[in-house]
Nucleic acid binder design. Structure first.
Lengths: 142, 142
DNA sequence: CCGCTCTGTTTCATACGTGAAACAGTGTAC
DNA sequence: GTACACTGTTTCACGTATGAAACAGAGCGG
């Protein structure tokens, strides 16, 4: 199930980002629909992570979010030495979810900071993540 | 204004890039199909610019091309340069120093977390940094 | 209470992208 | 010749993403 070689488009992340920004701006689904030319129904499905959005719609929404494509369409394959791709090994084993949980659990942490850092971590992680699987101690040497 | 009605996915550019690299490597469609998990038929259609590929397939092929998503999705600029490097634009204006200052100022934040996150941010930032946000100038300039 | 207007969600028919397989060439060997 | 192994292209049944419209609910004014 956690086959990273198959699922390239992180629709869940996209959906959450959209909902977050939309609620932040107090916009309705139809408002965003008007702005992005993505129908409200499709928008709802995307926010709820149902199905896989069309490429055009993804692009439109990424544009609306002002979010880099790599954030959602990050593809890391485990093929050989492509030294061009930077790989970072994070201190301790940590996944975005774990970090986010940590930050969220830290009640003394200001919400903005927690959010920003969580988002930051996710960006960096999805970009640099070790090709192996999740929290396993297997880090691939280059 | 935000004429999002335009097609964001430049399939023609993608198709040409694939064909170019494929022929450069003297690979058959089925070879690339094996490498990318994209069927040869779909690959042929993409190379010929027929239809609009699935988001997953686009991501797989971008990965195979080692080409940034912006090249195909969103505002694409005409440029003969093939410099393909992953670029991440962090949300909001944030430099490692600013973030570190924030973390340091947040006294309620556990020191280890603060340190780890600060370090993490610096690593990610220096890796991905978009020094001038040079060529794009689309927005989010700094 | 009854409309009215907003919200997000969910049918529903349609459109289309998909991969397997069939097809059409093109060499190359025997 | 005619087999065989390739190539790229296209057909075909199927799955599914899509937007319009219908739906369910909340809030509000009359």
């Amino acid at each position: 199930m956690t086959d990273t070689t198959k699922s390239f488009v992180n629709t869940v992340e996209l959906g959450r980002a959209i909902r977050r920004k939309r609620e932040e701006l107090s916009l309705s689904l139809r408002d965003v629909a008007d702005e992005t030319s993505v129908s409200a129904s499709t928008l709802s499905r995307i926010e709820n992570g149902t199905g896989k959005p069309d490429a055009d719609n993804i692009a439109r929404l990424m544009n609306w979010l002002d979010m880099p494509m790599e954030r959602v369409m990050g593809a890391h394959r485990e093929d050989g030495d492509d030294s061009a791709k930077a790989v970072v090994y994070f201190p301790h084993e940590a996944t975005p979810d774990i970090v986010e949980a940590h930050l969220r659990a830290d009640r003394n942490l200001s919400p903005e900071t927690a959010k920003a850092l969580s988002e930051l971590f996710r960006v960096a992680y999805t970009q640099f993540s070790v090709p192996g699987s999740d929290t396993r101690g297997r880090n691939k040497r280059k």
